[in-house]
Amino acid sequence: MTALREFVLQDLFKFNRIVFDPLTEVYPLLYFYNKILEFPLLAEVAVAPDGQMMGFLIGSRQVDGADRVGDGKDLDLNNNHGHVCTLSINHDYRCLGLGTHLMKRFNNRLELKQDLFVDLFVRSRNVNAIRLYKSLGYVIYQKLPCFYGDDDGYDMRLPLSRDVERRCLQNQEYLMGILFLLLRLPRKYLISLWHALLKLLTKKLF
């Protein structure tokens, strides 16, 4: 039976087989060390009956103190959110729903904190991970060109229950709405709009 427990520092010497997967980002040990110490309740590992590490998730939180008013308890005035720093599953234990289970447990912890949303970064070519995140409700918020040096990245977000109006996706939905409207315009209007934009830029620059 799979056992879920808190990720401890000793696990940093056991997870090489997992983190050296081609689609898992390799960070310095100090990165993991700092995250685990700062957010111990947001780091979890799944262990097989024989003690082998099956997978793990390490997360963090961003507490937006700049937006707080008074004692900071007015939830509508803060942008607190969680971040999935890394999720990785041992190749031998994939397709068992383990990644889904770890992600849901992480999201539930942030729900208890009444955070606004959860976000994560993923390689654009990691189609299996993107499919998993979309099945959990995550949306591609923006594309990040050359984010990984040799590959583009996606910033994906999941609005939590407090974000009833999906505020965390508004910028993305606004831009998509504008793009949709532009694509519906006749070609001659698009050309005219482009020329007008060029004239405006020329005046600004010169």
Rank of each mutant, 00 (worst) to 15 (best):
D150K: 06
K143N: 09
L181D: 14
L132K: 07
L185W: 07
V139K: 02
V19N: 03
R166I: 11
L57Q: 03
K113A: 13
V69E: 13
F32K: 06
L9E: 13
L4F: 11
K35D: 05
F147D: 08
T86S: 12
Q62W: 12
P28Y: 06
N108G: 11
S60A: 12
D119W: 07
L182P: 01
D115Y: 00
E111G: 12
V84N: 01
V47R: 04
P145R: 02
G55C: 02
L9K: 10
Q172G: 10
N128W: 09
V19Q: 06
N80M: 10
A196D: 10
R187F: 07
V63Y: 11
Y141K: 09
L136S: 00
K14E: 13
F106Y: 05
I178N: 08
Y154W: 11
R94W: 01
L181K: 13
L57S: 04
V84E: 04
L9S: 06
I89W: 02
R167M: 11
C146R: 06
G55M: 01
K134P: 07
G99Q: 08
K204R: 15
G65D: 07
L12Y: 01
L160W: 00
H101R: 15
L12T: 13
K134E: 15
G149H: 01
K134A: 05
L158T: 08
I18A: 02
D64F: 13
L175I: 08
E25P: 00
D155V: 11
Y93T: 00
P40K: 01
Q170I: 13
F121P: 01
T2F: 02
A129C: 03
V127W: 13
L30N: 15
G177S: 14
I140R: 04
Q170A: 14
V122T: 03
K113Q: 15
L182N: 07
K73G: 08
T86A: 08
K188N: 14
L158S: 02
R5K: 12
L4N: 04
Q52H: 06
L175N: 11
G153I: 00
D152W: 08
Q170G: 09
F117P: 06
D163A: 04
M176S: 09
A3F: 11
R157G: 07
E111I: 11
F56L: 01
L175Q: 14
N126W: 09
D119M: 03
G55S: 04
F20M: 10
K203E: 11
D71K: 06
G177P: 05
P22F: 01
K35F: 03
M176R: 14
F121N: 04
F13V: 09
N90V: 07
S124N: 09
L116I: 11
L175F: 05
D115C: 10
L144D: 03
H195C: 10
